[in-house]
Amino acid sequence: MGDMSKNYRLNFLKEVEANVEEGEWVKMCMQCGVCSGSCPLGKFWNHPPQEIFMMIRAGKREEVLTSNAMWMCTSCYNCIVRCPRELPITHIMHGLAHYAKRLGLIPQQQPTAKFAQLFWNNLSNKGRVNELKLGVKLYFMNGIGEGFKTSLKMKDIGMGMMKTKRMNPLEIVGGHGLEDIKGFQAMLKKAQELEDQRIATPRP
């Protein structure tokens, strides 16, 4: 069973409160399980939200932060709508994912985590999502071989989209973006600074 000394201690709950967005709500979960029952993707998670909250209170730091659970959330908000204690469960899940990433604890080969990074990189480049580039990156996310296979499989759809002008092949070079890209990136930089500052200063 490993080291039991941290079992059911408040250390990890306090860490979550200090570092995870909306983490102060975790202690208010009353374990009714409505969130777990409401989650359309619940059966694909290794821990539904109710269980994640209990694990936090039981002091299971490693298991929570390396879990794939919060990465599987699709933000459908069913849990938030139904939670009788009105916990912002979706936000807590994203907060946990964010904190796990900060600590470098994302599970290996976690596809939604990878996709999230690709999306962010794509978006932050020019302030607009370049769907063609994002699609190609996604196809080749797991290596060249699989990339070509997926591309071939999807080619008819791609041709159809081009014909109906839903996809511009020229987007692969450069692509559209914001008018003031420099200003946009300055904003992102400032936001990052503020976030770093927030993390560096412990909450009261």
């Binding site: 202690k27 208010m28 374990q31």
Partner: peptide
């Protein structure tokens, strides 16, 4: 009162 206990960080474990 249950919420009060939770708010004060009493751990409730089924």
């Amino acid at each position: 009162f249950y919420r009060c206990g939770q708010q004060e960080m009493v751990t409730f474990s089924k």
